[in-house]
Computed example of a mutant assay.
Amino acid sequence: MRVSTKHKQHYFTVTEYGSQQAALEAARAFRDSLSVDSFRGDYDHDKFQARGESGVLGVVKYMQRGDHVGWVACWQEGKPPHRHQRKKKFSFLQYGQKALEEATAYREKMVRLHSIANTV
């Protein structure tokens, strides 16, 4: 088993530890001794979530022939591992300037309805 810490790798071989179980236990002990920051590095999760120009996670621009014509709410449905991405469009023609508010509210409703906690 190989455990990576930033730029350094540690190997736990069967020949070194005598059995696969002993190597696995040593690797797990080593992993558990590392701090959580070792696994995350300096990755800022919130910074890299897809919020797009809407500023809302899961709500993206609705483009048609290069024109911004509304917003799209995106969420997932189903039980793991068979979750499917779903989306609903909110056009400016139908919703006017409230399209972003409607898309955000609809997405929040669908995320609550189809959260993994509700499907397990």
Rank of each mutant, 00 (worst) to 15 (best):
55 G>V: 11
2 R>C: 15
45 H>L: 12
31 R>W: 02
118 N>I: 10
44 D>E: 08
63 M>D: 09
87 K>H: 10
66 G>I: 11
72 V>Y: 01
60 V>C: 07
76 Q>K: 06
46 D>R: 12
21 Q>T: 10
112 R>H: 00
31 R>G: 00
120 V>I: 15
60 V>I: 13
71 W>M: 02
90 F>C: 08
17 Y>F: 15
27 A>W: 00
71 W>A: 01
26 A>G: 03
7 H>R: 03
51 R>N: 04
31 R>I: 02
88 K>E: 11
114 H>W: 07
102 E>Y: 05
28 R>E: 02
96 G>S: 07
73 A>M: 02
43 Y>I: 14
83 R>F: 07
87 K>V: 02
34 L>S: 04
79 K>E: 15
91 S>K: 00
99 A>T: 05
117 A>N: 14
52 G>I: 07
77 E>R: 04
75 W>N: 05
16 E>Q: 06
118 N>D: 02
13 T>L: 04
75 W>P: 01
11 Y>W: 07
119 T>M: 13
92 F>I: 09
58 G>M: 04
64 Q>P: 00
42 D>N: 07
22 A>W: 00
90 F>E: 05
94 Q>I: 12
72 V>E: 07
118 N>S: 09
111 V>F: 06
98 K>E: 10
62 Y>Q: 04
36 V>A: 12
57 L>S: 04
93 L>A: 15
69 V>E: 09
36 V>Q: 09
59 V>W: 02
48 F>P: 03
108 E>Y: 08
80 P>L: 00
4 S>R: 13
86 R>W: 10
34 L>W: 03
22 A>K: 09
14 V>T: 12
71 W>T: 00
78 G>R: 11
47 K>F: 02
96 G>A: 08
102 E>G: 05
76 Q>N: 03
21 Q>S: 10
117 A>R: 14
6 K>W: 10
117 A>V: 14
90 F>Y: 12
100 L>Q: 01
3 V>T: 02
6 K>T: 09
60 V>W: 08
40 R>Y: 14
51 R>T: 03
44 D>Y: 09
69 V>T: 06
57 L>Y: 01
62 Y>F: 11
105 A>C: 06
102 E>I: 03
54 S>P: 03
22 A>M: 01
40 R>C: 06
82 H>L: 14
99 A>Q: 10
19 S>M: 12
30 F>C: 00
40 R>M: 13
23 A>Q: 12
88 K>Q: 11
96 G>K: 11
29 A>H: 09
88 K>F: 04
119 T>Y: 15
120 V>H: 06
14 V>P: 03
68 H>V: 03
75 W>K: 01
